[in-house]
Design a protein around this nucleic acid. Structure first.
Lengths: 114, 114
DNA sequence: GCCTCATTTCGAGAAAACTAAAAATGAGAT
DNA sequence: ATCTCATTTTTAGTTTTCTCGAAATGAGGC
């Protein structure tokens, strides 16, 4: 993960509707959700939602796929995991525990463009 | 963690200089770094850096403390962990594994023993 | 008590992001 | 081939963010 793609991902998530949208997809699992359904659940106009979906897609956080008449979006879990790993890389100057939970870990072995 | 504080945290991280700064502090550990040292390492004017530090502090991602003439900043690890947990909450519609790594887990309070 | 120096606040200009109606697209259905 | 409908693109206006020099602040040192 590179700095600018991390900034892009974080920027994509740093917005009320997009964060709610992404979490919805994260919780929806591999099945994903249709764009129209998302717009309805979020109470956002279609054109606005499309703008936000594009932001998330360009950041690499969601994937899209046509299914009949709808377009299904789903969370890109590897991208999410890579982002989190980037944030926590080389955490805590080598201390074993960063104070809370197990989240702060040594760098996951760098995988090629997840 | 609530939606708006997550948005605030993500927005704080969604900026080239602030992301570099936060990662620097994450890697620096509990010892932290002085504001001036950070500005120098990042190659950013003091006034700009102060703006960014304020963003991160108001988002709750960094803590500040006076030490002699300098002000020491350090990463707020619990806040970082809470943010990550919020992103991944109820991940994957109950599937055991989100496809990559170990990052995608059940909500924090029900953490399984390693 | 005054001086020094690290840091923050102020101010204004430039750039980027959000919103949403209206028009366009294009895959499926008939 | 044509129609339909879900979705995206366009467009324009509003709001927010970023930048950084100059001035102000305030804790420590002298």
């Amino acid at each position: 993960m590179q700095a600018d793609s991390a900034v892009a991902s974080l920027g994509a998530l740093a917005q009320e509707h997009r964060l709610a949208l992404f979490r919805m997809l994260v919780q929806a699992g591999e099945g994903g959700m249709a764009a129209g359904m998302i717009a309805e659940k979020l109470g956002v106009p279609n054109s606005s939602l499309s703008f936000h979906l594009t932001q998330l897609r360009e950041a690499g956080l969601v994937l899209q796929e046509r299914q009949h008449r709808s377009i299904i979006y789903r969370a890109n879990y590897p991208a999410m995991n890579a982002l989190v790993a980037y944030l926590m890389e080389n955490c805590c100057a080598g201390a074993a525990d960063c104070g809370v939970g197990a989240a702060c870990e040594a760098p996951a072995q760098e995988r090629k463009s997840a």
